[in-house]
Design a protein around this nucleic acid. Sequence first.
DNA 1: TAGATTGTTAATCGATTAACAATC
DNA 2: TAGATTGTTAATCGATTAACAATC
Lengths: 212, 212
Amino acid sequence: MSKEISQAVIRRMPRYYRYLGELIDEGVERISSNELSARMKVTASQIRQDLNNFGGFGQQGYGYNVQYLYEEIGKIMGLNEQHNIIVIGAGNLGQAIANYVKFEKLGFVIIGLFDVNPKICGRKIRGNPILMLDEIESFMDGHKVDIAALTVPKSEADAVANRLVKLGIHAIWNFAHVDLELLDDNVVVENVHLSDSLMQLSYNIVKSKNDN
Amino acid sequence: MSKEISQAVIRRMPRYYRYLGELIDEGVERISSNELSARMKVTASQIRQDLNNFGGFGQQGYGYNVQYLYEEIGKIMGLNEQHNIIVIGAGNLGQAIANYVKFEKLGFVIIGLFDVNPKICGRKIRGNPILMLDEIESFMDGHKVDIAALTVPKSEADAVANRLVKLGIHAIWNFAHVDLELLDDNVVVENVHLSDSLMQLSYNIVKSKNDN
DNA sequence: TAGATTGTTAATCGATTAACAATC
DNA sequence: TAGATTGTTAATCGATTAACAATC
């Protein structure tokens, strides 16, 4: 068991990665925690603490090499390997995910889409035909699948998710608005609850009105 | 200025709301913080503390009335009023958002979609025709818009967002993978960074492999 | 070498959990 | 009334910030 790093830190890593990517694009070679702190509007102390959870990537008197730090964070987040994704539920959201080119640049490749609706079966999304969900078992036979993106109605989510788990899926990117109840709790789940996000926005709207 | 409630609490409220909705569907009339704690896998203490940020909704010896608490949380989150949304960028993701019926049940109503692509202009999404982005100024004249959902490429995000802010938009649901730099910092922004979410998932996959 | 900036320890702050008196 | 369970205060835990010695 590797030393536990808090999810608060993990949540910040992608943001560091993004800013470092921008710095590379700008041709910046090195940056101090202080300069980065000014850009990102977090404390320099937090940046140094966060990074030192994973190792010493900087150099006293110099700062951090942008390219090197970018690559190291990429490795930490697992971007050095390709992750194959299947999308379960090829409605609007599923298709949107499958169409999003950005993910592929990060090493996340969509290799299959599945749906129960025969009407959209066969339609191609960026080269991938939508398959019938019942083909999933045979599909899993011939393919390495790392992540299942779940964009099915909440009523179906548990059943479909557990069907996938039985087929050996170990990671679920869950867009259904439920907390999945899985048979195996070694499965990694990352939730994207859009209605929750919208409600938070709504709360902050009400608050900002009251504050003024 | 109303007493500040931490975003950690706000982030949990939609989840309470969801569980209470499920309890209503199950016909449960009252629930104690202890029972709810077992269902939601959080401490009863946290539930009571969280709720008491907003007021005393329970009753000693009884617990919480499910229906009442559900409605009160709804009000806290601003769901007692309708929120009109426009979607800026009518690509796959924008269309997915506009098609998502669930939002409407929570009081979030899509009243317009905009894009710069003339090819999709006029196409209807659940009754709303996609309009050209240049029609936004005249549209804002005749409509009350509470939230702009921003699903444009990151390169366009700042410019488009500030154009909206100038037109009086006070809340942005930002799907572009940037931290928006807005001219007015009274604008409320809620970010949905899907690549960040995917990277977190990826990190946890790597970790779970190392742990076993 | 002198200056800069990290890595890391210590101090502070905030959030979570525990405990219990108030009260339905 | 007795039992249950809240609302709230106090204790603990964890995360953030500050400080500074180590070192490039």
